[in-house]
């Protein structure tokens, strides 16, 4: 038929430009420039986070009254816990308490990546559960979705700030506080996927083949939701890293002695006019990290979920 005709050619022309026939999804993902760039940078950051103690760092929480407010590249002396004086180059300078910013930035990688990853996992798992229930058990649907609408009506940062303020900030509370406002988005996504897929003729065929509801859910519906969920997961990860740094920056996040990029900036903003690098250096790390995660997410979306790629 005519319309299918032209669309077939249009698809052929699009596909052949970018997608080789019979190439598996995984091969396509690996060939994507965005995935390689984003994934590469993230791999490097993970390596930095793991190897932090061996990258010429000192204890990131150590004060040294003798080396306050140093500009980047300056060499000074630091007193270790044992009381020895060692020569140390402050590559990124030091803050007003004499802590080595380079060490704090390197160790800060750990916090950011951990918070991003765990938040994404937590909100995905909980969101998938609620989404499946809402999409499959009709009488619970209305109730769950109203609550989700309510949570979504409160701006995410406000929920996070309020929860952290109530609970006293720790790694766990920060992660939970950031995850809660993300859950409704995952729930909505999963629910809409379930509702769309269960209308597909192949699911109806499975019903008439006598397959049970759990079997249909796990062998027909869930596998077809993985791609959009992976994509959503990376975007949650990026936003979690951002929100964590905002919490620290505003002074309501993790305690100030813990080296996080937000905390370094919060400390540095007081002397911003004289020492802007205290804000900019962690800022650059933060931006690069979030950028890498977002680029990875874009690449995954384009290759795993081409339909969604055109939409956003």
């Amino acid at each position: 038929m005519a319309a299918t005709d032209i669309k077939r050619y249009a698809e052929l022309s699009v596909e052949s430009a970018d997608i080789r026939p019979h190439e598996s999804t995984w091969q396509r993902v690996r060939r994507s420039g965005s995935v390689r760039l984003g994934g590469g940078v993230i791999a490097l950051l993970i390596l930095i986070a793991i190897a932090a103690p061996w990258l010429g760092t000192v204890d990131p929480t150590m004060f040294d009254a003798g080396s306050r407010d140093l500009v980047p590249g300056k060499t000074g002396e630091m007193m270790t816990d044992e009381g020895d004086l060692v020569k140390h180059t402050f590559w990124f300078g030091s803050d007003s308490l004499g802590r080595d910013i380079y060490s704090r930035v390197i160790y800060g990688t750990r916090v950011s990546l951990f918070v991003g990853l765990v938040t994404a996992l937590v909100s995905l798992v909980i969101g998938i559960l609620f989404g499946l229930v809402a999409g499959y058990i009709r009488w619970l649907d209305g109730m769950i979705m109203r609550v989700m609408d309510g949570i979504m009506a409160i701006p995410a940062i406000l929920i996070a700030i309020a929860l952290v303020a109530m609970w006293r900030a720790s790694l766990t509370t920060v992660i939970i506080a950031i995850a809660i406002p993300e859950i409704p988005r995952v729930t909505r996504l999963v629910r809409s996927l379930v509702l769309t897929i269960r209308e597909e003729p192949y699911v109806e065929a499975a019903i008439s083949l006598g397959s049970s509801t759990p079997k249909i859910m796990f062998s027909h519906i869930l596998p077809n939701t993985i791609a959009p969920l992976v994509v959503q997961g990376t975007f949650i990860c990026a936003s979690a890293i951002l929100i964590e740094s905002i919490l620290s920056f505003l002074g309501v996040g993790l305690p100030p002695e813990i080296p996080t990029w937000g905390n370094i900036m919060a400390e540095g903003r007081i002397q911003f006019v004289s020492y802007p690098h205290n804000v900019f250096i962690p800022g650059v790390f933060l931006t690069i990290t979030v950028l890498a995660v977002n680029i990875l997410g874009d690449g995954l979306r384009d290759t795993l979920d081409p339909k969604m790629a055109k939409r956003l």
């Binding site: 900036m265 804000v279 800022g283 931006t287 979030v290 950028l291």
Partner: peptide, 29 residues
């Protein structure tokens, strides 16, 4: 737009303050 999503508001804010206010003096700090 990917960059816009990724750069934290406060980093951008300080960058603009540093550039447009402190260096160029176009706007109040």
């Amino acid at each position: 737009s990917v960059f816009g999503f990724s750069v934290p508001v406060f980093v951008l804010g300080y960058l603009l303050v540093w550039l447009a206010s402190l260096k160029l003096g176009w706007f109040p700090v």
